Computed example of a mutant assay.
Amino acid sequence: MSHSIINPQGLHNPVGFGYSHVARASGELVFIAGQYASDGDGHVTSSDFTEQVERSLANLRTALAAAGLDYRHVVQLRTHIVDHDTDKLAIIARLIGEIWGDRPPTQTLTGVAALALPGMLFEIDAIAVSP
């Protein structure tokens, strides 16, 4: 199975962290690495959970666009939340609803003790299908 790797200009360079942002497999499946509230240098942009989710979703949009896709092409999400609780679930559900409405992709949510970098509270990765 052939694949290509894409690290879009609008996101930080992830290679030093040991991953790439986007992998396109067999021309149809596109895998988006965990996106978090990062700026162009990979630094966490906010300590606020809602702002981190919003920025992570914006970064996901940037990664999808680099593969010629958008949110409607996403078939699966995996979300990782530090100190998960129902208040955070409500925030995620609202923001997912604003993007996907009544047809959200499949999703697995995992509560975790910590994520890769200090200050990260939320991370989201995705699988999309290219038409």
Rank of each mutant, 00 (worst) to 15 (best):
S2E: 12
H3S: 15
S4D: 06
N7R: 04
P8A: 06
Q9W: 06
H12M: 13
H12S: 14
H12Y: 15
V15M: 11
G16H: 01
G16E: 06
S20K: 09
S20H: 14
V22R: 03
V22H: 06
A25P: 00
A25C: 11
G27E: 03
G27I: 03
E28W: 12
E28D: 12
E28C: 07
L29F: 08
I32K: 00
Q35W: 00
Y36E: 10
A37K: 07
S38W: 07
D39M: 06
D39R: 03
D39A: 07
G40Q: 13
D41S: 11
D41L: 13
D41F: 09
G42Y: 15
G42S: 12
H43G: 09
V44A: 08
V44S: 12
S47P: 01
F49L: 01
F49M: 04
Q52R: 11
V53K: 00
V53G: 01
E54F: 03
E54V: 15
R55W: 02
S56Q: 10
S56R: 12
N59K: 05
N59H: 05
N59E: 05
L60S: 00
R61F: 04
R61V: 07
T62V: 11
T62E: 08
A66E: 10
L69E: 02
L69M: 06
R72I: 08
R72G: 08
H73E: 09
V74Q: 07
V75C: 07
V75A: 02
R78H: 14
T79L: 06
T79R: 11
I81D: 00
D83N: 10
H84Q: 12
T86S: 13
K88W: 02
K88C: 03
L89F: 05
A90L: 03
I91W: 07
A93P: 09
A93K: 14
G97L: 03
I99A: 00
I99F: 03
G101F: 04
G101D: 07
D102Y: 02
D102E: 09
T106I: 04
Q107H: 10
L109P: 01
G111M: 03
A114K: 15
L115I: 13
A116H: 13
L117M: 15
M120T: 11
M120D: 13
L121D: 00
E123I: 11
E123K: 11
E123L: 13
I124Y: 02
D125C: 15
A126T: 05
A126F: 06
A126S: 05
A128I: 04
A128C: 04
V129M: 09
